[in-house]
């Protein structure tokens, strides 16, 4: 076992034991952090490895959230509602694959971004189903610790699966598509099929996270699950940390979440502005993200955390 594996193992143990010896707000804080990691990592399957920047990724999150809420209130139970959340998200991903993957680059990103706004409006308007702007409240009590463990589990599962997938043949096909889609086709890769599979996998994690989040927070409305914040924050975490690298979104999530916590207590104003300026700087000077910064690359690669 390499050194880094031991560190990861210890870290996991720590996170598992954490709720028992820290105040509740810390557990809640970590839950949100892990949630962002799940959304950012699942986004990066399509955004980083496949090379299609899916600005509409959080639509899966929202779909999972609403599906879960509606079914749970319909007395379908936690397990079935969660399963349904995944299925609806994946089905939706499969459906939009055919039309949307005909678009490239900027076209694709914008069309998917428009999709979120569409869902936010649908959630507003289909009042009988979704409760409109008042949202849905699920019949349950506030449960932090259990939700924390579910989220931690999903986070580990997401990162682990992405680790395996990107090293597999499937990952090779995705990278080939990203590098040169036309050439990839002439080397036997059915690009539409592979893009669709990537999107479906990406959607499954996000929609399950939507379900868990709803279970935790008990109340959802269109703005919370289809709004700009949940749409943009995880994606910027992935880009800031380093898109296309396994630890990229994780680093990005930690960075942004911690900085935000510190800022919140010190400076009451201009959070959004500071966040904005920070990502401007990243865009200008660190397009590969934090993990690809010259002085970080070599050490990270030596630790086995970064691949070329």
């Amino acid at each position: 076992m390499k050194k880094i594996h031991i560190v990861i193992f210890i870290g996991l143990i720590l996170f598992i034991l954490l709720p028992h010896f820290t105040p509740r707000y810390m557990t809640a804080f970590l839950l949100l952090l892990f949630m962002h990691i799940v959304i950012a990592e699942s986004y990066d399957i399509v955004g980083g490895y496949l090379g299609y920047i899916n600005m509409g990724h959080s639509a899966f999150f929202g779909i999972g959230a609403y599906t879960f809420a509606i079914l749970l209130n319909g007395n379908f139970g936690f397990f079935l509602s969660s399963l349904a959340a995944i299925l609806v998200g994946v089905l939706f991903a499969a459906l939009i694959s055919f039309p949307f993957f005909r678009l490239r680059g900027a076209y694709f990103s914008l069309a998917t971004f428009g999709l979120i706004r569409l869902f936010e409006l649908l959630a507003f308007n289909l009042r009988s189903l979704t409760g409109g702007s008042s949202g849905i409240m699920i019949k349950a009590e506030y449960r932090l610790t259990l939700a924390y463990y579910f989220t931690l589990g999903l986070c580990v599962l997401t990162v682990g699966l992405i680790f395996l997938l990107t090293r597999s043949r499937l990952g090779l096909a995705w990278t080939a598509i990203r590098e040169d889609e036309e050439v990839a086709q002439t080397f036997g890769i059915n690009t539409l099929k592979h893009k669709c599979v990537a999107l479906m996998i990406s959607a499954s994690f996000a929609s399950l996270m939507g379900a868990f989040y709803t279970w935790y927070i008990i109340f959802i409305n269109p703005k919370v699950v289809f709004g700009l914040e949940i749409a943009l924050v995880p994606i910027s975490m992935a880009m800031l940390g380093g898109s296309g690298a396994l630890i990229g979104p994780i680093v990005g999530a930690f960075f942004i979440t911690i900085v935000e916590e510190i800022l919140w207590t010190k400076v009451p104003y201009f959070h959004l502005a500071a966040y904005g300026i920070a990502i401007v700087l990243v865009g200008l000077f660190m397009p590969g993200g934090i993990v690809r910064l010259k002085w970080l690359r070599k050490p990270l690669m030596r630790l086995g955390l970064l691949e070329d």
């Binding site: 920047i53 910027s236 959070h271 959004l272 904005g276 401007v280 865009g283």
Partner: peptide, 17 residues
């Protein structure tokens, strides 16, 4: 695409705030 999203989005957020 990534860079232009980051820069223009960041600027937008700053201007808005």
């Amino acid at each position: 695409v990534i860079a232009s999203i980051l820069v223009t989005l960041g600027a937008s957020l700053a201007i808005e705030d």
